[in-house]
Design a protein around this nucleic acid. Structure first.
Length: 377
RNA sequence: GGACAGGUGGCUGAGCGGUCAAAAGCAGCAGGCUGUAAACCUGCCGACCCUUGCGGUCUACGGAGGUUCGAAUCCUCCCCUGUCCA
C-alpha cells in the first residue's frame, strides 16, 4: 500500500498525503465514518458518497457474529455485500475486548467471549481476526490488540502492550501466509493492507517500546490505540505527538477512535493522517449536532420555533433545506428522519472539517488556521 | 329509577390509618456520549424559602362534613364517570 506525502506544514507536524488502496486513493488527513455492522447508521451509501466519505470503517467482531464472514465473502466481500465502491477499513475487535470486557476473558492465545447477542461462546485470536478480515475483504485491516480503559495500572498497561505486540507478530505472520496462499491460487491481485497498533496508555516509555516493536514487525500503516479512553486531553495530545514522532514518515498514522472536532485539529497538527470516531453519528442520533459555533443540542426546547438551519455557516444538504424547529420536532416525535438529518449534517461537518485542514496544509496556511481556531475557543 | 365498579400529581396507574409530596410507566426539562451491546444512558420533574439538608413552610389524592394523636387510606352526605338491569 503506497502512501505519498503531498505537503508538510512548516510549523506543525501536520501533513497531507495520498493513500493508495485497492478501491481508490484516499486524500489524507481523512476522517472515516464508523459503519460497525456494514452500515453507517442512519444514512445510505449514496448519501455517504455525496458527503464525500472516502473510506468507512466496519467491525470484525460484529460482522463475524452477524451475518458471519462467510456470507459476506460469498456476497462479494464487504464492498459487494453493502454496495460500497470506495475503501473500507475493518477494525479487529480489539476495542470490543474493552467495551464488552464483562463478556470476555483475555488469554495469551486470544479472547474468549460470550456473544452480546445470544450469549454463545466464541474465540477470537490474532490469527482468527486476520482470517475473518480476509473474508470480509477490506482495503485495510487491523491486528487484534488489547485496548485498556483509563485509568489502568502501569503493570496492566505493560502486560497489555506486550501481549498486543506478540499478537501483532502472530497476525503479521498469519497474514503473510494467507497472502502467499492467495497469490499461488491467483485469487486476487488486490490484497488488503495490514496495520499494526501501538498501545501503552499514557506511559511514554511503554508507547516507545510498543512503537519500536510494532515497527520492527513492519506494517503498511501504524495506528495509535488506547487513547481517548478517559484520560485528560493534554495526555491524549502529548502521547499522540510523542508517539507519532517515533513512527516512520512514509507510512500512514491512524489515531483510533478519536475524536471531537477539536481533537482532530490538535492531532492533525501532531502528524496524524487518519481518524475514526462514532461521535458524529452517535451524537446525531441522540439529538446533538456539531456546528461552527460549537455543539448544539437540537432537541432542546429553545429550538422549537427556530427557523434557522442547524449551522448558518454550513452548506450541507440538511442546512440548505431544514430548520432546527423541524428537526427538533422529528426528535421529539421519535421520527427516524431526525436521526438521519442530524447524521448527514454531522458527517458533513466532520468530512468538511478534514477537507479544510488538508487544504490549509497544502496551501501553507495550516498554522495560521490552527492558531485561529484555537484562539477562537 | 336500581345494582355494581370507580374518581390519586400533565396522562395512564399503584397505594388503601402514620415511614406519602404519594410507586411505576409515559409525557416534559436538562446533561452525557471519542477503534458503536447506544434512535442509548443518566439526572430532574407540586410551589415557595433557606444555613442546599435524606432541611423548612404551604398546598395536594372529586366536594363538604366527621372519626382519630394522625386520613389519599375509615364513616356520612353530595357531585361526577363507567358497566349492567329496568
Amino acid at each position: 500500500m503506497k502512501f505519498e506525502i503531498v505537503s508538510r506544514d512548516a510549523a506543525t507536524g501536520a501533513r497531507a498525503g495520498l493513500l493508495h488502496t485497492p478501491h481508490g486513493i484516499i486524500e489524507t488527513p481523512c476522517f472515516m465514518p464508523v459503519g460497525t455492522a456494514a452500515t453507517v447508521k442512519g444514512v445510505t451509501q449514496e448519501q455517504l458518497e455525496q458527503l464525500g466519505a472516502q473510506i468507512i470503517l466496519a467491525n470484525t467482531y460484529h460482522l463475524y457474529l452477524r451475518p458471519g464472514q462467510e456470507i459476506v465473502r460469498e456476497m462479494g466481500g464487504l464492498h459487494g455485500f453493502m454496495s460500497w465502491p470506495r475503501p473500507i477499513l475493518t477494525d479487529s475487535g480489539g476495542y470490543q475486548v474493552m467495551s464488552l470486557r464483562g463478556l470476555g476473558r483475555v488469554t495469551e492465545d486470544g479472547v474468549h467471549f460470550r456473544s452480546h447477542l445470544d450469549g454463545s461462546s466464541h474465540f477470537l485470536s490474532p490469527e482468527r481476526a486476520v482470517e475473518i478480515q480476509m473474508a470480509l475483504r477490506p482495503d485495510t485491516m487491523m491486528t487484534l490488540d488489547e485496548c485498556l480503559e483509563y485509568p489502568a495500572s502501569r503493570e496492566n498497561l505493560h502486560r497489555a502492550m506486550k501481549l498486543t505486540g506478540r499478537w501483532a507478530r502472530r497476525a503479521k505472520e498469519h497474514f503473510e501466509k494467507l497472502r502467499c496462499f492467495e497469490e499461488e491460487k491467483a485469487e486476487s491481485r488486490m490484497h488488503p493492507a495490514l496495520f499494526g497498533i501501538v498501545q501503552g496508555g499514557t506511559d511514554m516509555s511503554l508507547r516507545r517500546e510498543s512503537a519500536e516493536n510494532t515497527m520492527e514487525i513492519g506494517f503498511a500503516g501504524y495506528a495509535l490505540g488506547g487513547l481517548s479512553v478517559g484520560e485528560p486531553k493534554s495526555e491524549t495530545y502529548d502521547v499522540t505527538e510523542s508517539t507519532a514522532a517515533l513512527l516512520p514518515q512514509d507510512r500512514p498514522r491512524y489515531l483510533m477512535g478519536v475524536g471531537t472536532p477539536e481533537d482532530l485539529l490538535e492531532c492533525v497538527a501532531r502528524g496524524i493522517d487518519m481518524f475514526d470516531c462514532v461521535m458524529p453519528t452517535r451524537n446525531a442520533r441522540n439529538g446533538s449536532v456539531f456546528t461552527s459555533q460549537g455543539k448544539l443540542v437540537v432537541k432542546n426546547a429553545r429550538y422549537a420555533r427556530d427557523e434557522t438551519p442547524l449551522d448558518r455557516a454550513c452548506e450541507c444538504s440538511v442546512c440548505r433545506r431544514y430548520s432546527r424547529g423541524y428537526i427538533r420536532h422529528l426528535f421529539m416525535a421519535h421520527e427516524i428522519l431526525g436521526a438521519t438529518l442530524a447524521t448527514l449534517h454531522n458527517l458533513h461537518f466532520y468530512l468538511d472539517t478534514m477537507r479544510k485542514f488538508r487544504h490549509a496544509i497544502i496551501s501553507g496556511g495550516f498554522e495560521k488556521y490552527f492558531s485561529r481556531v484555537r484562539a477562537g475557543r
